[in-house]
Design a protein around this nucleic acid. Structure first.
Length: 549
RNA sequence: GCCCCGAUAGCUCAGCUGGAUAGAGCGACUCCCUCCUAAGGAGUAGGCCGCAGGUUCGAAUCCUGCUCGGGGCGCCA
């Protein structure tokens, strides 16, 4: 929707003009709000403008509100606004006329299938979102699934508001755990148990069989490890594929070393004077950036730490021209964030461009009890297992519907249920229900939409219709807010509300065969607009919007 | 000890850059299909918004202190 035909913007600017008129053209302080009041009897929209004006004008808020209401009435005209009331401490409440709703529907219809979202941001950025980045030493657990769902949805949100975004998976294919991984596979190839600190899972044996079949010598740990990582990544990629998550880039830690990027980053830190040698190790002076102790970059044994590679990696990201780096980390990494941030500062980069989002854990719950199954206790349930059980749509939903900084208890019993108790089906059902209505009407979308703003002489809009229109108008703002706050869960909540409003409308308003001139077409059009909005919302979550259920 | 997160209905959580009588889902209890998908809807019950101060015309929301819970404080990744 463009600003020119945005019915909310129309109201907002009328409020601004009225406020300005009361102040004789003097600029006002903070911009007045225009929001939905908590109760229907308080009107369609409401503004706090009078309360903001009262202080600088030295007057009672309610008196200011009364004058503002009169001014606003003139600005909008009888055609648009039925009445304006002053209420509470000085709110100005607008009760809009059907004509305004008609225009709103027409502008939603004009926005078309893809235009229901927000206007592109005035300040688009090139954003890199790094997420999942699970160690390539085994299949993805459900924790990785939450990261995948969240990161992917975040990218969709950022793109929806006009940023240019890439998805990236960092492959930790260097370091100690790869050695232990290789040793574990090699042990299985020889028919032995993996070492004490090795990898136990059954997949390790499978990998061993395949690697042996390819003629690789278990004595060549380098080759075993390399091939093992490749095979695990194939598995991971397959799982992500099922889940509908596709990465633009897979960046290998090992490549950072072989391209000399780690050395280059360390040299840069050294030049900037942020490193020193002590106890045989190379240290990064992170304490000069508020860390509570300095950190090791190169161990006394000459091996670089994970941090050394990660500094190089983030340097590389910045070199690639991204204006914003978003890292999605697990809860166990949060202590690490400050370290990484200070390292980035040490390289002379602007730390405001770096953002670390911490994901809390996922617990699997069954019938209210925290599941304690041997194979699937806590977060060690495989994502593939969960997908087998409840499917990609429900998995996505239950991974996303809570804020990323709160622990999710995923109730398998609820997620499995294909009924109204299950919120994901509730929303999808609304979409399918509308599809069914439209099928029954035997009209193509092109035939329906032009009727969106159609006049219905002799009949007025039902309250549930008005409610629905206002809800649809919230969509762009919801998307913008969800993107800014990095909060896909808001879209879950919003889509549930849209679905609930639709079901209410469906109850009160007969669509097909509705009486009155233009009423049926108007309602069909409204239904189609709801369908598009639900599809758009679910799309931001990576969840399908079925035509039939 | 230090750092990060949380604390809102019986349960799981929204709401948090200040606004009016604090919301949703689940669970509990009542009802509603000769009617476009009952995978739906209507209703009832259920709250010291952790505690105590502060800022404000106004605080679940902002500030301070405290309590409780989770996580983190490696020359692991």
């Amino acid at each position: 929707m463009t600003a020119a035909n945005d019915p909310i913007a129309e109201l907002r600017s009328a409020v601004d003009r009225a406020a300005l008129a009361l102040r004789d053209g003097e600029p006002t302080g903070p911009a007045p709000t225009l929001e939905r009041p908590p109760k229907a009897e308080l009107g369609d929209y409401s503004s706090n403008a009078a309360m903001l004006l009262a202080a600088p004008m030295g007057e009672n808020p309610r008196d200011v509100a009364t004058r503002l209401a009169a001014e606003l009435g003139e600005q909008l005209g009888e055609e648009t606004v039925e009445r304006i009331e002053v209420a509470g401490p000085g709110f100005v409440n607008l009760f809009l006329a059907d004509a305004w709703y008609r225009r709103a529907m027409a502008s939603l219809a004009a926005a078309g299938e893809r235009g229901l979202g927000p206007e592109p941001t005035a300040m688009p950025e090139r954003v890199l979102v790094e997420f999942v980045s699970a160690n390539p030493t085994g299949p993805l657990h459900i924790g990785g699934g939450r990261h995948a769902a969240y990161g992917d949805s975040l990218v969709r949100l950022l793109e929806a508001v006009g940023h240019e975004v890439e998805r990236e998976f960092y492959v930790n294919d260097a370091g100690g755990q790869i050695g232990r991984f290789a040793a574990s596979i090699a042990a299985r190839m020889r028919g032995e148990e993996p070492p004490e600190d090795g990898y136990e899972g059954a997949y390790v044996g499978d990998l061993g069989k395949q690697i042996a079949a390819e003629g690789i010598d278990p004595g060549d740990l380098e080759a075993v490890g390399r091939r093992g990582v490749e095979l695990v990544l194939e598995i991971v990629r397959g799982t992500l594929d099922r889940f509908g998550v596709h990465f633009d880039n897979w960046v290998s830690e090992r490549d950072l070393y072989s391209r000399g990027e780690v050395d280059a980053a360390l040299a840069q830190l050294e030049r900037e004077g942020h490193t020193y040698r002590s106890e045989g190790a190379l240290w990064l002076r992170t304490t000069s950036f508020d860390d509570d102790k300095d950190r090791v970059l190169i161990r006394a044994n000459g091996e670089p730490t994970y941090l050394a590679a990660d500094v190089a990696y983030h340097w590389d990201k910045l070199e690639r021209g991204f204006g914003r780096l978003i890292d999605v980390f697990g809860a166990d990494h949060h202590g690490y964030v400050a370290r990484l941030r200070t390292s980035i500062a040490g390289l002379g980069a602007d730390t405001d461009r770096f953002e670390a989002l911490i994901m809390r854990l996922v617990h699997i719950v069954e019938s209210g009890e925290r599941a304690q199954m041997s194979k699937r206790s806590g977060e060690f349930v495989l994502l593939d297992e969960l997908l087998d059980d409840i499917g990609a749509d429900a998995t996505r939903w239950f991974m996303l519907w809570r804020s990323h900084d709160t622990t999710v208890d995923l109730d398998l019993e609820l997620a499995r249920r294909q009924s109204n108790d299950n919120p994901v089906y509730y929303v999808q059902y609304a979409h399918a229900r509308i599809a069914s209505i439209l099928r029954k009407a035997e009209l193509e979308p092109e035939q329906v939409v032009p009727g969106a703003g159609i006049e219905t002489p002799g009949s007025t809009l039902e309250p549930t219709e008005r409610e629905l229109v206002k809800r649809l108008l919230e969509f762009p703002g919801e998307v913008r807010e969800a993107a800014i706050r990095r909060a896909p869960h808001r879209i879950c909540a919003y889509s549930t509300t849209v679905a609930a409003d639709f079901h209410g409308f469906y109850r009160d308003c007969k669509v097909i065969g509705a009486e009155g001139e233009g009423v049926e077409r108007s309602r069909l059009a409204l239904s189609l607009l709801v369908k598009r909005t639900i599809a758009g919302s679910l799309g931001l979550l990576g969840i399908s919007a079925p035509e039939r259920m």
